[in-house]
Design a protein around this nucleic acid. Sequence first.
RNA 1: CGGAGUGUAGCGCAGCCUGGUAGCGCACCUGCUUCGGGAGCAGGGGGUCGCAGGUUCGAAUCCUGCCACUCCGACCA
Length: 440
Amino acid sequence: MRLSRFFLPILRDTPKDAEIVSHRLMLRAGMIRQEAAGIYAFLPLGMRVLQKVCKIVREEQDRSGAVEMLMPTIQSADLWRESGRYEDYGKEMLRIQDRHERDMLYGPTNEEMITEIFRASVKSYKQLPLNLYHIQWKFRDEVRPRFGVYRSREFLMKDAYSFDIDAAGAKHSYNKMFVAYLRTFARLGLRSIPMQADTGPIGGDLSHEFIILASTGESEVFCHKDYLEFPVPEADVNFDDVGGLEKLIEKWTSLYAATSEKHDAPAFDKIPEARRLSARGIEVGHIFYFGTKYSEPMKATVTGPDGTMKPVHMGSYGIGPTRLVAAIVEACHDDNGIVWPEAVAPFHVGLLNLKQGDSGTDAACEQLYRDFAAKGIDVLYDDTDDRAGAKFATVDLIGLPWQVLVGPKGLAEGKVEVKRRSTGEREMLTPADALKKIAG
RNA sequence: CGGAGUGUAGCGCAGCCUGGUAGCGCACCUGCUUCGGGAGCAGGGGGUCGCAGGUUCGAAUCCUGCCACUCCGACCA
């Protein structure tokens, strides 16, 4: 992509409403624009990151055996009257009426709808287990949206819903998602730590929040340092191995880990002091087993092996991709801007023509641009008339993992400069070597 | 929903108290000079001053109402 033909509205000044670093940087980098309180447009740079996040989320959901679908944003109020939540949900639910004055709502979540879809078609235990997921926009009319897309009213959400014949099956479904989440966040370049979470009125201990560590995170977290070194399950993990998965989850839940709300100071103090980690974190995922809370009132039953009808055991599993983009920025930035993990970077490399209009640099850039494209590398080619300094500042701000700086100075010796955004490391290489280093 | 604020050019702000031709910096356009870490000079474009009433010869400025947005708290992926 040539920057001259892209849409990258960089802001030099920080908008005053942006309080936290991810909000500031996302606005400055031209990733998002606020359209109303808690409602944001994703501009091209932001959309690229969002799509990469979704792609990884999707791949790991698929790997675990979940099946993608898409439910609508607008739902009928009748569905929510069945579960009793239409009255309970409160003002966070955006209620609307269509032209026939039928009560509708913009979905804040989808348990009711997925249960309706399930019960319409699934009648036998033989069709279980089943895990259906979708990635869709949701709306929760928060009293006070803030922090940009980190806590917005409209947000993208991956929701998976599992269906099993009994609690034991549901536990295995839960474990699958647990592993999928560990892998998802690791692939996004983040270290996530599963922490015991509140299960609300349902009770039980089957709920975990996945927290990533970031110095600017909003909640205080306490855990055993060993979590930072636990190996993340490999891509070839066998999701059908019930016992194997159970052991994995046991290990990942064996040590102390809690957010401040659930913090148990005496338990934390039992950890050897050198292994205690007290830090700040951001919640990026939440998994939950809720049994028959919806299947009973909504009559989502299947026939079991013994011929009797049983309500299915369900769980739901959320990841907020839009929040995740902000969380990644919180975790990955420095004074000059964003430092994208390679897996989600909007472009892999920024190619800077330091003297646009100079025949030598123009030709070298055009050649490199073609060479990167031929290797399938996403490159943003800054072919604008801006001065070198402005280009440096911009490419640092938008955080592309690699920078290739092409100027007359280097070219005089047949070299271009390759800079790694994350470390600041630079080296002078021939264009061919630069290509090899970055594209492999 | 309680408390506190702010609305003036794309962004950041001054002007308002004490009414009198709407300003500054950045960004944008033109030209010249520059050109490896957000250039300099000169010229230029862009505003129903959040909206609606009211007071006044005259309102960005004073009064009333409304709307939007932000911050603190409670709530939350």
